[in-house]
Design a binder for these strands. Structure first.
Lengths: 148, 148
DNA sequence: ACTTATCCTAGTAAGTCAATAGGTTTAATA
DNA sequence: TATTAAACCTATTGACTTACTAGGATAAGT
């Protein structure tokens, strides 16, 4: 499925915060930007969206940054994706009021609605903790490789 | 999930052809256009895409139109959706070559790839016959209502 | 005070979407 | 065989969305 950079970068940023905010230390945009080569200015917008969805908390001022608003195993990808792009998991389909038949309504009901529920089911089961864990191990293996 | 009008209209058109091509009679763009209030000119492009994917066959000339290239129970929504929008079911994600970590790769693998397979599983199980059947009954109920 | 960071509002270039326009080709039929 | 009805083909366009960038205001630690 095609996903926007906003969603993709948002997930990377959250995984980064989950991993790098040890003992409550806030993670800065500059840090995330450097670690993953993502424009800091662009990240701002993305993190604000995540903040507005109450997934992270921002701390202003020097030594500021972001921390997760709740434990990573309590943040599902349903939460994350919805925070960044409302169109992915909820269906706003084609207007069916002008259809002479009821085909559009039928297709919405027996295909798209079901598909949405199915998708939602999937992303509700995966948490940020799951993915962050994978990122952590993959990254440490990566670092190990450099020293061989 | 957000779907383009191209996908939506393509499905309507296929359901219409499945229902209205009784005894091999070709279904014209003009007919589909009228029955569902969809621009005929726009439908042209959509039907050409479906034809190129070998889901329908076109017949030129007077009394021409389109027929299904194979029985409707042999056409899955995997086929249909891929014919109309290749981005929906196959993931071409963000470039991960510039990432200093391996986060992007990890997220692709443990989220998007899995999600795609999951989605593909779903749409491979639903055939055009299933949806056309629903459209047929919903539409006949609809017509019935008008005469009460 | 100074620095470091988030927060906030605008703007913009490039790309995609949803059509529209105008013609060519092919086949049935009168 | 002329007419007509249809698919087929190529190009264009306006509106919208995406993926940023710019420039500042605000807040907090040193």
């Amino acid at each position: 499925m095609k996903v926007s950079t906003k969603v993709e970068f948002g997930i990377i940023a959250l995984a980064d915060i989950a991993i790098n905010s040890n003992n409550g230390k806030a993670v800065s945009i500059a840090g995330i930007s450097e670690r993953h080569n993502i424009s800091a200015k662009y990240l701002e917008h993305i993190l604000i969206a995540l903040k507005q969805a109450n997934l992270i908390r921002g701390q202003k001022g020097a030594r500021g940054g972001y921390v997760l608003a709740r434990p990573s195993d309590k943040i599902t990808f349903f939460d994350i994706i919805n925070a960044l792009d409302i169109t992915i998991l909820s269906g706003s389909y084609i207007d069916d009021s002008q259809d002479n038949s009821s085909f559009k309504t039928t297709v919405n009901e027996c295909l798209w609605d079901k598909m949405n529920l199915y998708l939602q089911d999937f992303v509700k089961k995966i948490t940020l903790a799951d993915v962050a864990e994978q990122c952590r191990t993959a990254n440490s293996e990566n670092e190990y490789m450099y020293y061989i």
